[in-house]
Simulated scan of single mutants.
Amino acid sequence: MNIVINEELRAYIDPLTPNEYAALERSMLAEGCRDALVLWGDTLIDGHNRLAICQKHGIEYKTVQNSRFGSIEDVQLWMIDNHLARRSVTDFQRGVLALRKKEIIATRAAVQQESSPAPAADVADSAAEPGAEAPQAGKRNTREDLAKAAGISSNTIGQIEKITKTAAPELVAAVRAGTISINAAAAVASLPASEQAAAVAGGRKELQQAAKQVREMKAASKPPKPPKEGDTAEVSGAANTVGNHSAQDGSDVSLLNRRISELSAENAALKEQIAMLSAALEDARRAA
């Protein structure tokens, strides 16, 4: 039987690690090829590793046809949902697959809008339901929908999207390898690409330190929240009270002035800390 290998489809899903491939090979040598290879016509869409192992060791295998696909995008959507159903898929892989599904569905929705006179509100753009092969009316392709379909949180989806858009290749590889968490990688992805690469070269501890420094700098740079209306009234009332009492007792004014001095000193210390962190990060980049 002539089986065609489409390299685009083979590369669409992350390959097995060497350990995973070796485990699959041992299992097939002991038990044979239990799952049928899935074909779309002559094209293999599921079972690339199993086919290679069968051909290497002369193991018999079966095939099954899936003829309901109308395009390569249909096949890709099926591959995504099929892979998301597996327990061995990491959270990062789940997020990447969910974002790929989002892109396919969004592209289809855009084409449908251009070719259909229907109002935009009626154009479906949802990827929430596993197994969906075409947009369905009345649904939205929200981050929550993607997270639910992928089995991860919407916050994780947002972090993975940031990583895929701004992370250097070295940082993406570190996340895939489990050297750094998704949360920490999203923080490090805020740095210039050269600094990301330097942090990756420094290993796990260097990556964790870089993520910590980024978080601390972001926290220090956040402006203080403006007081609410009720809080403003309380502050004004307190100020008036202090003003009235200060005429009778100058000690209140002294306390306020001392508190202002303390706050000013704390603010200066924070600025100094930010400068030190920035200098340390720059030194680490140069050292790398």
Rank of each mutant, 00 (worst) to 15 (best):
M1I: 06
E7R: 11
A11W: 00
A11Y: 03
D14I: 13
D14L: 15
L16Y: 11
N19A: 14
Y21R: 11
L24T: 09
A30K: 15
R34C: 07
L39T: 01
W40L: 04
W40K: 00
G41A: 05
G41P: 03
G47C: 14
G47K: 09
N49M: 15
L51H: 08
A52D: 13
I53G: 01
I59A: 09
I59C: 06
E60T: 13
E60A: 13
Y61M: 07
Y61G: 01
K62A: 07
K62P: 00
N66V: 08
R68S: 12
G70P: 05
D74P: 11
V75M: 02
V75T: 02
Q76L: 12
I80W: 04
D81N: 11
H83G: 01
R87D: 15
S88A: 14
F92I: 13
F92R: 08
F92K: 07
K101F: 11
K102I: 12
E103P: 01
E103R: 09
R108N: 02
V111D: 08
Q112H: 09
P119L: 00
P119C: 01
D122S: 15
V123Q: 04
A128Q: 08
A128C: 11
E129V: 14
E133P: 13
A134Y: 03
G138Y: 04
R143Y: 12
D145T: 03
A147S: 02
A147T: 06
A147C: 02
K148R: 11
A150T: 06
S154D: 11
S154G: 14
G158I: 05
I160R: 07
I163N: 06
E170V: 07
L171G: 08
V172P: 08
A174Q: 04
A177Q: 11
T179M: 13
T179K: 10
T179F: 11
N183K: 07
A184Y: 07
A186T: 06
S190F: 06
A198C: 15
V200M: 00
R204Y: 04
E206Y: 01
E206T: 04
E206W: 00
A211N: 06
V214S: 06
E216Y: 00
E216M: 11
A219C: 03
A219D: 05
P224Q: 03
K225E: 12
P226L: 00
P226S: 02
D231K: 01
A233E: 13
A238W: 05
N240A: 13
H245D: 13
A247P: 00
D249Q: 08
D252H: 09
D252Y: 07
S254W: 10
N257W: 01
N257T: 03
R259N: 03
R259V: 00
S261G: 15
E262K: 05
L263I: 13
S264A: 09
E266V: 12
N267Q: 08
A268K: 06
L270D: 05
E272H: 05
M276L: 15
L277F: 04
L281D: 14
R285H: 08
A287W: 03
A288N: 10
A288K: 00
